Computed example of a mutant assay.
Amino acid sequence: RQTERVGEVVGGGRDPAHLQKAVELGILDRYETDPARAVAGADMVVLAVPLGAMEGLMRNIAPVLGPDTVLTDVGSAKGSVVKAAQAVFGELPPGFVPGHPIAGTEKSGVTAAFPELYRERRVILTPLPTSAQAAVRKVRAMWEACGAHVVEMGVEHHDEVLAATSHLPHMLAYALVDTLARMDDSQEIFDFAAGGFRDFTRIASSDPDMWHDICLANHDALVKMLEAFSDDLRLLADAVRRADSGFLKETFTRAKQARDAFCDK
């Protein structure tokens, strides 16, 4: 909207109060609580719902999508989105271009939105053999107008990469907080939690419904990463138990070098 690349922005959702707040904040021009009415006549439709709701939403809007309508999404697991589209459309429409912005915070809802959210962030598009090049260009242009860097990759590769870099870290944060919260002295533990704990566990404040769906949608790739990490964690526990100074120092040094190299990019 700031770059004046859109005409009318119509929102669709279940909560009129949240949608009205989006209008008041200038994010939407108007809204509809009926998804089909919201997308009728749209040039571009962006689906931003939990992965478990994708198929139902697609089924609702499919009858009113125009032949030239571009359909994309922001789901964190692309394989499940493609399967949902196949279940609804059968033959995938040429305007369907799956996507995933690698940006966001642990906050959710319209009040957590801000114009700079996607600036200098990456957006992954996973075009399909059925995706029209014109549709891919439009989705790319939309994200670039938001200031994002757009890359393309295959659906399966996307899900493997995100299982490692996004889904696994969320599982670790949720598991750590849950483990500590169930301890008898959990209140004292949290009272003395410092900045490192807050930094590491920030993402455990993310929407549980959304992450529930992501786990189920990308379970194959996520299980592989959880098992690999569990193996390494057992090695680390053994090293601590044996007071293996060399193993600990080598692990910590290697991890620091890898993270420093990543952050310096």
Results as ranks from 00 to 15, higher is better:
Glu120Phe: 11
Ala112Trp: 04
Ala87Trp: 02
Leu176Val: 14
Leu92Ile: 01
Ala85Asn: 01
Ala134Glu: 14
Arg121Ile: 03
Asp73Lys: 01
Met153Val: 10
Met183Pro: 00
Met58Tyr: 04
Met171His: 12
Phe96Asp: 06
Gly104Asp: 05
Arg59Tyr: 06
Val136Tyr: 09
Gly104Met: 01
Ile61Met: 03
Ala113Tyr: 12
Asp184Cys: 11
Val155Ala: 07
Val74Ala: 09
Ser131Thr: 02
Val177His: 08
Leu117Lys: 11
His157Gly: 06
Pro94Phe: 08
Val45Asp: 01
Gly154Pro: 08
Met58His: 02
Val110Gln: 05
Lys138Pro: 02
Ile61Ala: 08
Gly66Leu: 11
Thr69Val: 08
Met153Asn: 06
Gly56Cys: 14
Trp143Tyr: 13
Ala173Pro: 05
Ala181Ser: 15
Leu47Lys: 01
Glu160Gln: 14
Pro94Ala: 15
Val88Cys: 06
Gly109Asn: 06
Ala84Trp: 04
Ser131Arg: 05
Leu71Trp: 00
Ala181Arg: 13
Val110Ser: 07
Val64Phe: 08
Thr165Cys: 12
Lys138Ala: 15
Leu47Trp: 00
Gly75Pro: 02
Ala77Arg: 11
Ala135Asp: 07
Glu144Pro: 11
Ala85Leu: 01
Val49His: 05
Ser80Leu: 06
Cys146Tyr: 11
Val88Thr: 14
Ala113Glu: 06
Arg122Tyr: 15
Val155Arg: 03
Glu116Thr: 14
Val46Trp: 00
Ala173His: 06
Ala42Glu: 07
Ala53Lys: 11
His157Asn: 11
